[in-house]
Design a protein around this nucleic acid. Structure first.
Length: 169
DNA sequence: TTCCTGACGATTG
DNA sequence: ACAATCGCCAGGA
C-alpha cells in the first residue's frame, strides 16, 4: 500500500476521532488523548445524606442536589426498561438538557444506570459525553448498546429502540 | 455576577 | 426527510 494512502487514512481517522472528542489537539497542533469525561468510582452509591454531604467525585467535585435527584431517579429504572432525558426531567424537574448535564457527570456508572436513558424519539442517544452519529466512530455508545443488550433491550441498525413497550411508564 | 457550554427536544424552512 | 434554529436550564469558569 502506498504511503500516501496510509497518511490519508490516518488523517481521516484523526478527524473523526477529534470530532467525537476521543482525542484533542494541543496548541502546537500535536494530538493527545482527551481526558475521560466522567471518571467512574468503585464506591457504592450513597443514600445517607451525611455520606452524600462529604462525598467528592473522582474529579474532586461535590455533586449538586439536582444531580443526586437525577441519579436517585435512575436507580428506580429497572433492568429491561429505559427512560428518556425528557422523562428524567419530568420526574425530577429541570429540562431534558439539564438532565443530560447530570448524566454526563455520573461517577457511579453503571451502578447508577445512566445507560438506561435514551432520546425521546427512541434513538439510543449518548454515553459518556459521546453522542451517536452514524457516520463517526462511537465506541462509548457501542458500550451502552452492549450493556442494554445484556439486559434484553435491543436497538435496530439505525439505533432506534426495537420494542416501544420497554419504555418506562 | 455574567457568560458560555452542553449525553435535549420541539419547531421551522 | 432533513438541517437549521430556538428555547431550555444546570454547571463551570
Amino acid at each position: 500500500m502506498p504511503a500516501e494512502r496510509v497518511d490519508l487514512n490516518k488523517f481521516r481517522f484523526n478527524a473523526l476521532a477529534e470530532k467525537s472528542k476521543d482525542i484533542s489537539r494541543t496548541k502546537d497542533g500535536s494530538i493527545e488523548p482527551s481526558p475521560p469525561r466522567a471518571p467512574t468510582t468503585s464506591a457504592p452509591f450513597p443514600v445517607d445524606p451525611v455520606v452524600r454531604a462529604r462525598y467528592r467525585s473522582p474529579c474532586g467535585k461535590r455533586p449538586t442536589a439536582h444531580q443526586w435527584k437525577v441519579w436517585d431517579f435512575l436507580m428506580t429504572v429497572p433492568r429491561g426498561k429505559v427512560t428518556t432525558y425528557k422523562g428524567v426531567a419530568q420526574a425530577v424537574g429541570g429540562s431534558a438538557r439539564s438532565a443530560g448535564t447530570a448524566l454526563r457527570s455520573n461517577p457511579f456508572s453503571p451502578q447508577v444506570p445512566c445507560h438506561r436513558v435514551i432520546a425521546s424519539d427512541l434513538f439510543i442517544g449518548g454515553f459518556y459525553g459521546e453522542w451517536a452519529k452514524s457516520d463517526s466512530p462511537r465506541p462509548k455508545v457501542d458500550k451502552k448498546r452492549a450493556l442494554l443488550a445484556e439486559e434484553g433491550v435491543l436497538f435496530d441498525s439505525k439505533g432506534y429502540l426495537c420494542k416501544r413497550n420497554q419504555l418506562l411508564g
